[in-house]
Amino acid sequence: MAIIEARGITKTYLDGDIETPVLKGVSFSINPGEFLAIMGPSGSGKSTLLHILGFLDRHTSGAYFFDGASADSYSEDELANIRNTRIGFVFQSFNLLPRASVLENVRLPLLYSDVPEADWDGRARAAIEAVGLTHRTDYEASRLSGGEKQRAAIARALVNHPDIIFADEPTGNLDSASGKAVMEILENLNREHGHTVILITHETDTAAHAERIIHVRDGMIERDEIVTDRLTAETFTK
């Protein structure tokens, strides 16, 4: 069964009396374990789509089913719980707490979870190890390089063992080497650990890591393709 099913989702922003339609009815479904890229030029509505799918924003009309249940049926607290336990977010601008250490940043989602406090550090350290940042565990986030920051952010997204990882232009602020490393990690999470990864990008290279690409333009789905010549981590390292 699809973990995500969108049926005719629209989003219209209201600024006073001026309506700005951003999404004009998009429908698709995503199965567990998929690695999906959403591509499109800026202003195409791809970020808005990701925010709606990740419960950071609400759609205007249409229906969104998450794990079989309509998003409209969830209360505020239930949405917070889904964001906390089922979803991990990776942002283009990292969004780390600059004065806090890597460990504290990665631990942050656990504060809002049911995980017993005794397990917090262990879980956070495991997530930090999974992204290869063990040597930076006690560094202040502001002292990390861009690539390290994004890896810390991925560790934070992982710490509650989510079903889906949403990544909003994760390589957008990184040099190509760091970007490559980040993509390797995401791909590894998808392949080795079965996380569903939904990625936004406007770089064809980055999108090529995915198994499937949805092209968005002017608030509509232009094309939904299965990637045949997939750029995998192995091909990169060769």
Partner: peptide
């Protein structure tokens, strides 16, 4: 914090 699951 809200994106990471903080409730109101």
């Amino acid at each position: 914090r809200k994106a990471l699951g903080a409730r109101n």
